[in-house]
């Protein structure tokens, strides 16, 4: 038995497949691909798969991963992406399969590309929005309400922004790295929501997760 990890992207229509539904789509794909993987025991047996870091509904990603246990040690891992892709919608593409290097608990941060534009183009020009974004990021503190298990809590996002840079072309681009993982997870939506409030304009943000990193700063693999 071998613990393996597949890496996949989720784009286009795939952005609207929730985490729960992604799980379902993956289980069905594994069934259809006839990959021999370990099943849970008991009455409701099902293929056992786990995901390192859930992705919010509406986000695209270049760096999702899923783990499972292959029962047959002789399977060529390089063949697995093609096998799964034949059984997955085009908006989910598996691009790599390897034995897991890190543990999910090693995850420490995630990087995002956030493309921001006004919901109504007439509200503000891209350049103005870009300037506003830079002004916003220069604030000394960015206080938002974060829902936790114990209720709502005020947090200052400013301290959580690990890296960021901005740019603009057709839309405003915000490149961002935020804490991620089981202990502390900051969703970029929080920051976008705060920016929207700061602008007083309804915004649309297209978010792509572009990288997941460990404490040591290595790419999660």
């Amino acid at each position: 038995m071998k613990n393996v990890r597949v890496f996949f992207s989720k784009t286009g229509a795939g952005k609207y497949i929730s985490h729960l539904d992604t799980n379902r789509v993956m289980l069905r794909a594994i069934g259809k691909s006839r990959l021999d993987i370990w099943h849970t025991e008991g009455f409701h047996q099902h293929a056992y798969i786990t995901f390192a870091l859930p992705l919010s509904l509406g986000f695209a990603s270049d760096c999702e991963s899923m783990d499972f246990r292959l029962l047959d040690d002789d399977v060529d891992l390089d063949e697995i992406p093609a096998k799964l892709n034949a059984c997955l919608p085009l908006s989910i593409r598996v691009y790599r399969c390897a034995e897991a290097k890190h543990k999910a608990a090693d995850i420490d941060s995630a990087a995002y590309d956030v493309r921001i534009e006004p919901m109504n183009a007439s509200d503000i020009s891209v350049k103005e929005l870009y300037d506003k974004l830079n002004g916003f990021l220069d604030l000394s503190e960015i206080i938002v309400e974060k829902k936790t298990k114990k209720g709502k809590k005020q947090v200052d996002l400013k301290g959580y922004i690990l890296d960021c840079s901005t740019d603009f072309s057709e839309t405003v681009l915000l490149k961002l790295r935020l804490p991620a993982g089981a202990t502390l997870n900051i969703n970029p939506s929080l920051l976008i929501g705060a920016f929207e409030e700061y602008c007083g304009i309804e915004l649309y943000a297209d978010v792509t997760r572009i990288g997941i990193y460990t404490k040591e700063g290595e790419s999660f693999e």
């Binding site: 229509a13 997955l88 908006s91 919901m119």
Partner: peptide, 19 residues
């Protein structure tokens, strides 16, 4: 429609792209 999809429940209903 992309701009409006995140304003509605279950946007996956409206995008097709199924296997």
């Amino acid at each position: 429609i992309e701009k409006y999809l995140l304003k509605v429940q279950k946007p996956g209903r409206y995008v097709g792209g199924e296997l």
